[in-house]
Amino acid sequence: MSVQIDIAGLRPERIAVVPSPLAELGMALHALSEPGHHPGLQGWVTGVTARLDPHLADRMCEAEFLWRTTFSDLFLPYAGLPGRDTLPTPTLAEELDLLDKLTDEQFTDAALEFTCAPDYDQPGPAVLTDPAQRRRALELAATRGPRQARFAERLLDDPPRVRGWIRQFLEDCDEAFLADVWARVRHPLAADARHKTDLLRHKGLAEALASVSSAVTLDESGARITVDKLVGGRTSTADGGLLLVPTSLGWPHLLVLHRHGWQPVLHYPVGSPELAAPPSVEQLTLRMTALSHPVRMRICRLLARSAYSTTELAQVHGITAPEISRHLGVLKKAGLITTRRRGRYVLHQLDVTVVARLGSDFLEGILR
């Protein structure tokens, strides 16, 4: 599966790489709510949580569905403005002003997108005007507890009031912890944005996307970007631009805004411990499947200790050489074993380094 962005006809000057303080605040709130996703931020999370005002912490829980289960598009409001080419701004206050420019319908639809709905990238009725959509939103909110159900009901009944509440909450978060974070990360993020922009100008979009993540590729025609993820979706830059937003807090998340009618956005982590060539979702699936078979697990037990020929493995396991060869073929296709020739024998051995990475690779793959 993947998210695809149709960029046919997109002019280079309509591609921008710009940091966003509001997007960074959204990722900070996510890290505070789901610290297990971000082991490298454990110290920061502990420090912020220890000094957080209890009233602000309580308010944080009240609206956490905006950043815990999903990363709400409200943290990228410039993408929803007319023209589909508005850019992030240097300050949080300016970006909150952009958030205020979203219509009530846009704001509410984005705020109540609790799950990866199948119609996310398709036109559909607005939750404020369609009774069926309203019922669905309230049902989804109720599954996350009475507090979020009450919040969703208030938002549907009085969007301006709740919008004011959210803006005040985000301003209070800025005072409590984001201002310090932004002062520390804005220069590295700006440097990364300049680097990506230089790549765009001098080496082209393919090189710039490769520097974002090996999970982001441009097809040979230069007309479609594919982001390797465990979700599917499509969007287009028609009549708009493409925006790349770096984050210092985001790894392992690589987010793609592909909401219908909004400017496509790649929200990508910088300074991440990503491997030089992390496996694609397809490769990861192959590896997990290859190791799930009991015979192949027993073969791996031997190959982890030493190199064996096909004949030796057949003798040890009491099955035919062709059967062993089929199992070895599955393991080799998944990239889990290496082979070398010794005289007239071909020896196979488990690539222990690859297998040892599977836990982190799996986590990165499902969180990407």
Score class of each variant (00 low, 15 high):
G204V: 07
H267C: 10
A215T: 05
L189T: 03
Q168S: 13
K203Y: 14
P246G: 07
T247W: 05
L242T: 02
D198H: 10
S221H: 04
A179H: 09
V256R: 08
L266R: 08
V270K: 01
K196L: 15
W182Q: 09
H195G: 08
P246D: 08
K203Q: 14
K203C: 09
D180I: 10
A190S: 14
H195M: 01
K203G: 04
G261V: 13
A191S: 12
Q168A: 14
S248V: 03
R194F: 10
L205R: 06
L249P: 06
V270L: 08
S221P: 03
H195N: 00
V245W: 02
D174I: 08
K229P: 02
Q168E: 13
G204A: 06
I225W: 00
S248T: 04
L178S: 02
T197Y: 04
V185N: 08
S214R: 14
A238G: 09
L199F: 07
S213H: 15
H253V: 14
A238T: 15
H202R: 15
S211L: 09
A190N: 12
L218A: 11
G241L: 01
F169W: 00
P246A: 12
W251I: 07
T237H: 06
G222L: 06
V216D: 02
G232T: 10
F169C: 04
L199E: 06
L230P: 09
D172A: 14
L249S: 06
T217V: 11
H253W: 14
R224L: 12
A208W: 02
L178I: 03
H267G: 07
L257Y: 11
E171P: 09
A215K: 10
A190M: 09
R184G: 06
A183T: 11
R194Q: 14
H187D: 15
H267V: 12
H202Q: 15
H258W: 04
Y268V: 08
H187Y: 11
V227N: 05
T226M: 01
D172G: 07
D192P: 09
K196F: 11
T217Q: 07
R194H: 11
H202D: 13
A176K: 02
H202C: 10
I225S: 00
K203V: 08
P264K: 06
T197L: 00
F169P: 02
V227E: 01
R194K: 10
D219P: 06
A223W: 04
D219Q: 08
A191Q: 12
H202W: 13
A223T: 15
D239E: 15
H195Y: 11
S221C: 00
L200S: 00
L244F: 05
S211Y: 12
G250W: 01
G240K: 04
V216Y: 01
V231F: 04
T247S: 15
V216W: 03
L199A: 10
T235Q: 01
V270G: 07
A210F: 08
R201G: 13
W251E: 02
L244Y: 06
